[in-house]
Amino acid sequence: MQDMENLSDVSHLVNEIKHKKLYNSLDIALKTEELLEKLISHDQWKSARELMKLVKSRIKFIRKDLPTETTATSIMRHILKIIREEYESAAKKKGEGQSLHQLVTANSSDILDYSENLGSLRSSILDHLGEYKVEIESSSDNIAAQASEHIHTDEMIMTVGKSNTVEKFLKTAAKDRNFKVVVVEGAPFYYGHSMAASLAKSNIQTIVIPDSAVFAMMSRVNKVIISTHTVLANGGLRAASGIHSVALAAKQFSVPVVVLSHMYKFTPLYVVSNNHEAFNICASPADVIPPSAGKILNDIDVYNPIFDYVPPELVTLFISHQGGNAPSYVYRLLSELYHQDDYDV
């Protein structure tokens, strides 16, 4: 019972995501961060180990209820890493000053068990979290700031569907560059339409094309700029359905594919997972074929997957707030973001 009570905060979060009250990945990220901030400042934990256990139980809860939700779990994973770092530095400070010798030998000999009760831990973690929050909030601005390095005058950019990050990126670039954008509408949800409308409002030359015209259009495109739902551990993407074919067409014409991604979209997961259902979600087939179609629905199965898997070899570059990285470098980013022991909670 005690456990259940404690998890009510996270099940609220899960519910809000399920009810689509939280839709945007940035909102989810901020909400998750706030949730953990509250947990750390109010909950009665005594040691870092207890705190980590609390966070881990929340990650497990989300993974069970929303297997495709990675933003919230990534934020929590990163906070686990923050807790570990703060504990380590606090523990070190308590003892003697570190020598080079100690640094080299420490890892092998005494493994930290995070059980010590350190008074200053709470405040130092909260400080660190404050920095992290600012980092999340400014992430899309930082990504957008790099726009002029990647978009040049008179280029033709292709993008798929709607993404706030891409939108900001393009609009920032449009301030001092003149270029055209081709928006792939992204059937059957057609988020591309609202994206195009928004771009056109800020005086960017915008062309909307159906998904089927991607290949024909690709030869004229200079760059594909997209956003993604998740970056997997191998550098592959879980992105909106239809992006795989766009990436393949880009490969054919040697057009670079640039993926804009916040740090919290990187996950230590692989596509070859034992829980395949966790990779993709199927939305209602009503968007593909209306229920008024009648008799034919008795005889057919309709699938309307939301995501595509895009293999890493089709991606040219990831742009995060820290700058550009190749897909082969994702593993390194991951080890910076999360602690090895937290990869599989």
Binding site: P290, P291, S292, A293, G294, K295, L297, N298
Partner: peptide
């Protein structure tokens, strides 16, 4: 009401 074409099992 839910749309449901004639002949649909539902």
């Amino acid at each position: 009401l839910q749309e449901s074409g004639v002949g649909h099992r539902g």
